[in-house]
Write a protein that binds this DNA or RNA. Structure first.
Lengths: 167, 167
DNA sequence: ACAAACTTTCATTTATTATTGAAAGTTCGA
DNA sequence: TCGAACTTTCAATAATAAATGAAAGTTTGT
């Protein structure tokens, strides 16, 4: 396989993977492209390589920056902006975890707490509902805490986790 | 909040969460509904509660059964089929992890291995590509192994992980 | 072997989500 | 302060994904 082909395959695969995890394809592709670029890339070049419009590039770059995993860079004497991705994988995972926790898990926890707190008539049906949603709340809370704790290690957290868990 | 309202809110929330994680809304809603039902539910009742068509219900129940997190149940003297969800959360998490690993992570790993194995000319560009995709391969492989190891505990794995990790 | 009771399939339709591109906005140098 | 070079916004459009529903399929009791 030649470099260009490999790069393209990587970008496509990363994009498809993104879709399956609820991240829009172009966003994941831009991220992939920046991850494997050895130097910062202009919006123009991103548009060209991925064959996407200016608006699309702009919006998804903004989203990636909101996630904190892509950065703007300014080059001396250049008017236009360049972009780079976070390339440290531990850091990348930490940021993605934090964002998903904040955006999705925390709000879900809030709802779980609410719905598990209804004052139930004691029908079997309602008792089961309260019981099950309470368990779910506890479970998700615990999982969220674990994630948080793991990412606190920050540096090399996955490797450290491997050590802890394998023995 | 009344029971019916709480149940509905839970089902809606679970559905929305599903979407954000790449699982279709109805599939997640059916799963939510079954999770909090104290007894097996017929297809007719699912259609009624979620206001969906027969075809939709059938297809998503099939998908949930393929994931191994919803089961068919037969009641004595009843012609129609009833459905229940896996209610043990450890078991549920294990099954979801296994499936996502099999369907998404493993294939991605295959591609990462491929693209990181190109014979690079030694341009900085190509060297960086090989380096970065190799790192990514190692990272994803390690993460997948951790997931696997964790779910091997099966019983109460999250609680055990909490113990390991917090100290 | 038939028909009632039920489930599955899949071509068509509908809903959702992503993308485009042109206009508006911004920044910077002269 | 003007205008060139660039970026952002957002209404319109296109692409994708999900849902419908009627026909085909299956199972079971008689």
């Amino acid at each position: 396989m030649k470099f260009k082909e490999a790069k393209n395959k990587f970008v496509q695969t990363w994009g498809a993977l993104g879709s399956q995890w609820g991240i829009n394809k172009t966003m994941a592709q831009i991220h992939a492209l920046l991850m494997v670029s050895h130097e910062a890339v202009s919006m123009e070049d991103i548009m060209e390589e991925l064959q996407i419009s200016r608006g699309n590039a702009s919006m998804n770059l903004r989203a990636l920056m909101d996630w904190g995993i892509v950065y703007k860079e300014y080059k001396a004497g250049e008017r236009r902006e360049f972009f780079t991705a976070e390339k440290d994988l531990d850091e990348l995972a930490v940021k993605i975890s934090r964002e998903r926790s904040k955006r999705e898990i925390k709000p879900a926890l809030k709802v779980l707490k609410e719905v598990s707190s209804i004052t139930s008539d004691n029908t079997a049906e309602e008792k089961h509902f309260v019981d099950q949603t309470t368990k779910l709340y506890d479970f998700v809370l615990k999982a969220d805490n674990v994630l948080d704790k793991m990412t606190e290690y920050k540096d090399n957290w996955l490797a450290k986790l491997v050590v802890k868990i394998m023995k």
